[in-house]
C-alpha cells in the first residue's frame, strides 16, 4: 500500500471503469472457433447464474408456501399462501423497523458524505506540512479491525447516555470515514485547478471553494459515497445488537434476527413467517440496487485500485 501510487491523475479509477464498458463490447478478434467459444462462455454464464440466483428464488417461493410445504423445494408454491406476509405485518413492528432503518441509513449516509468530503477537500486542495504523513494515517486506519475499538467506543456512548438509542448507529460518521475520504480526494484532485484560482481572484473564501465549486462538480463521487454508506448502514447487525434493547427502535437486520429467534429456531419453527420477513428485509436493498446499482458497482471497483 504505497501512498505514492495514489498520485495518478485524479478520478482515473472512475474513468477506468467506464473504459471497461467500451472495451468488452468490441467483438472478439479471433474469428475461427470464436462461435464455439462464445457459446461455451454463454452456457457457463447461464449455469452459474442459476447457482447465484436460485437461492433467492427459493426464498421468495418459500415465503408464499404454507408451513408444511416450505421445505419441499418446489419452484412454484402450490397452494399459494399470502397469510405469511399478513402475519409479519400484523404481528411484528415491521413497518416501524423499515422506518428506523431509513432514518438511521439516511443519517449515516448524509453524515459520512459531508464530513468525508470536507476532509477529502482539505487533503486535495491544500499544500501543508505533514499532509502526506496524515494521509498515510488515513489509509492505514482503513486496515484497523473494528474489534480493536468496539469496547471503548461502547463505553464512550454509554457515558454520553446514548446506549439504548439509535445515535451510536450513525453519529460516528460525523467524523469522516477513511475509504470515502480516499475516494473523494481522488475525485477532487481531478477538478481543474484554474476554476478554484479564478474563484479565489474573485474573492471566494476556502469554504466557498468547497461548497460552491468542489461539491457541485463531484456529484457522481458523492453519490457513490452516499449509496455505499446507506447500504453498509442498512445491512449492519453488530451495532444494533450492541446498542439497541427496545424492539421499537430495531433496524431491519436486528428485527430479522429477532424474528428468527422468536419464530424460527428459538420459537415454534414457523419458517414460512421467517422467510416472508426475510424477503421484506432483502427487498429494499434490491430496489436500491435496481435504481443505483451503477454507483454501487463503481464504488466497489474503485476500492480495488487503491494498491
Amino acid at each position: 500500500m504505497s501512498t505514492d501510487r495514489t498520485n495518478v491523475p485524479a478520478a482515473a479509477p472512475l474513468a477506468a471503469s467506464r473504459d471497461t464498458e467500451a472495451a468488452s463490447t468490441s467483438p472478439s478478434p479471433h474469428g475461427a472457433g470464436g462461435w464455439a467459444r462464445r457459446i461455451a462462455v454463454w452456457l457457463t454464464c447461464g449455469a452459474l447464474s442459476v447457482v447465484f440466483v436460485y437461492p433467492l428464488v427459493w426464498l421468495v417461493s418459500a415465503s408464499f408456501k404454507p408451513r408444511q410445504d416450505v421445505f419441499n423445494n418446489k419452484l412454484i408454491p402450490d397452494p399459494v399462501e399470502l397469510g405469511n406476509y399478513a402475519k409479519v405485518i400484523d404481528q411484528l413492528p415491521f413497518l416501524r423497523w423499515t422506518f428506523n432503518s431509513l432514518v438511521v441509513g439516511l443519517s449515516a449516509a448524509t453524515a459520512v458524505t459531508l464530513s468525508s468530503a470536507l476532509v477529502a477537500f482539505g487533503f486535495a486542495y491544500f499544500q501543508f506540512k505533514g499532509k502526506n504523513a496524515l494521509f498515510a494515517l488515513v489509509l492505514g486506519s482503513m486496515m484497523l479491525p473494528s474489534a480493536a475499538t468496539l469496547i471503548p467506543t461502547y463505553l464512550i456512548w454509554d457515558r454520553l447516555g446514548f446506549t439504548g438509542t439509535q445515535v451510536p448507529l450513525w453519529a460516528g460518521n460525523l467524523f469522516g470515514s477513511a475509504f470515502y475520504i480516499f475516494l473523494l480526494r481522488q475525485f477532487f484532485r481531478g477538478l481543474p485547478r484554474e476554476v478554484f484560482d479564478a474563484a479565489r481572484v474573485d474573492g471566494a473564501g476556502f469554504f466557498a471553494l468547497f461548497w460552491r465549486i468542489a461539491l457541485p462538480m463531484s456529484k457522481p463521487a458523492l453519490a457513490i459515497t452516499f449509496i455505499l454508506e446507506f447500504q453498509a448502514s442498512w445491512v449492519d447487525l453488530l451495532k444494533p445488537l450492541v446498542y439497541l434493547n427496545d424492539t421499537n427502535l430495531f433496524t431491519l437486520p436486528r428485527g430479522l434476527k429477532a424474528v428468527l429467534d422468536n419464530f424460527g429456531q428459538g420459537g415454534q419453527r414457523e419458517w414460512e413467517v421467517v422467510m416472508a420477513a426475510n424477503v421484506l428485509v432483502v427487498l429494499p436493498m434490491f430496489l436500491l440496487f435496481a435504481v443505483a446499482g451503477k454507483y454501487i458497482m463503481q464504488g466497489i471497483s474503485v476500492s480495488g485500485s487503491k494498491e
Partner: peptide, 28 residues
C-alpha cells in the same frame, strides 16, 4: 460479451443481500 451486464448483476445480487438475510436463508 453482450451478457456481461446481466451476468455482473446476477453475481452481485448476493452481495446486496444483507448478511443477516443470507444467514437466515442458508440456515435453510
Amino acid at each position: 460479451g453482450r451478457l456481461k451486464g446481466v451476468f455482473r448483476t446476477v453475481i452481485y445480487l448476493p452481495v446486496v443481500t444483507p448478511p443477516v438475510a443470507t444467514g437466515v436463508l442458508f440456515l435453510q
